[in-house]
């Protein structure tokens, strides 16, 4: 009951927020937070719960964005159709990618995904006739107000959260975490590990592609070095999750909010040194909050509960 009340409060606050912050700049920051929250939540399903750390999610973000962009560039179709087609393209591509890369474990999977992400970036730079190369694609947006974008981004985040939430409460969640904790043990318990990794990968790629398509429509300009970026998309998604809380439902959203707000402060206050400050932040987070803010808070809360009750609640579904 208490949980339902909290959820309703959060929803109302989220809906009213842009009516309080009316300046376009503030609304832009809110939209950016929601985009990263959606991306982080989607990555978390594969990376945090199923333990398959992808350093190449930019590939799916970029594919979604470029699907929308190319519809407008070559076929004169509204890029809004990209919201339908973009995630489909990302999901379709994720199937062979997953089947190939899931042969590898741990850091080797991470490296293979990193290489794949970079391959997509280079191909989209060099395939000039189809993608317009490094010049990128620009569209003229029909909607210029921020408010509609805000609610779309909110919907996107809600979708990401709902899919993740539903999956992890079911058999899928138990299987994902089993695979992360010990793949051999999982396999010997009758869990088809490759198939379930794919079950985590598909929705993750779907949401990431959808967010990419939304990004194209919102920002109205993309180029391969931005949407397929290793540092600014792939690594950033992981950071958002690690900052907020690996394998927690709300962690990525918390991470996105803190990260976007901090980087705005860094950018406006420090100028050139902002990336340096950011790098230092990355190191500190990993060294001192290895499971993210929500993850560590959870641990602390659990410890307190145990002291009070002398027992501990079942702890699979955190946050």
């Amino acid at each position: 009951m208490k949980k339902v009340l909290i959820n309703i409060t959060v929803a109302i606050v989220a809906i009213l927020l842009p009516l309080v912050f009316r300046a376009p700049y503030h609304q832009h920051i809110l939209i950016t937070i929601l985009i990263w929250a959606a991306l982080g939540t989607a990555w978390n399903l594969l990376g945090g719960y199923a333990g398959q750390v992808s350093f190449g999610h930019a590939a799916f973000f970029g594919l979604g964005a470029y699907t929308a962009g190319i519809l407008a560039l070559h076929y004169n179709i509204s890029p809004w159709w990209g919201l339908l087609l973009g995630p489909l393209v990302s999901t379709l591509i994720s199937i062979p990618v997953g089947l190939i890369c899931f042969r590898l474990r741990g850091p080797y999977f991470a490296l293979a995904m990193l290489a794949l992400g970079e391959i997509f970036r280079l191909v989209f730079i060099n395939w000039v006739t189809f993608t317009n190369g490094a010049k990128g694609i620009m569209i003229i947006p029909k909607i210029t107000m921020k408010l509609p974008y805000y609610y779309m981004a909110l919907g996107l985040f809600f979708l990401s959260l709902t899919i993740t939430g539903l999956l992890i409460k079911s058999r899928f969640g138990y299987y994902f975490i089993s695979i992360r904790e010990d793949q051999d043990a999982a396999e010997s318990l009758g869990i088809p590990t490759t198939r379930y990794k794919l079950f985590a990968f598909l929705p993750s790629a779907f949401i990431t592609g959808l967010t990419g398509a939304f990004y194209m429509n919102y920002i109205a300009f993309i180029d391969p070095n931005v949407v397929f970026s290793l540092a600014n998309v792939s690594v950033m998604i992981i950071l958002v999750v690690m900052l907020g809380g690996v394998a927690t439902l709300w962690g990525p959203a918390v991470g996105a909010a803190i990260y976007i707000l901090l980087s705005e402060v860094f950018r406006t206050r420090m100028g050139a040194a902002s990336v340096l400050a950011f790098g230092i932040l990355v190191c500190l987070v990993i060294m001192f909050l290895p499971n993210g803010i929500v993850g560590e808070l959870d641990g602390l809360r659990k410890m307190a509960l145990r002291k009070m009750n002398g027992g501990e609640k079942s702890g699979l579904l955190r946050g």
């Binding site: 138990y174 975490i177 089993s178 904790e181 010990d182 051999d184 043990a185 999982a186 501990e312 079942s314 702890g315 699979l316």
Partner: peptide, 11 residues
């Protein structure tokens, strides 16, 4: 032994 370490015994 290969316990799924971060899951409860029940899980």
């Amino acid at each position: 032994v290969k316990p799924l370490k971060r899951m409860s015994v029940l899980d």
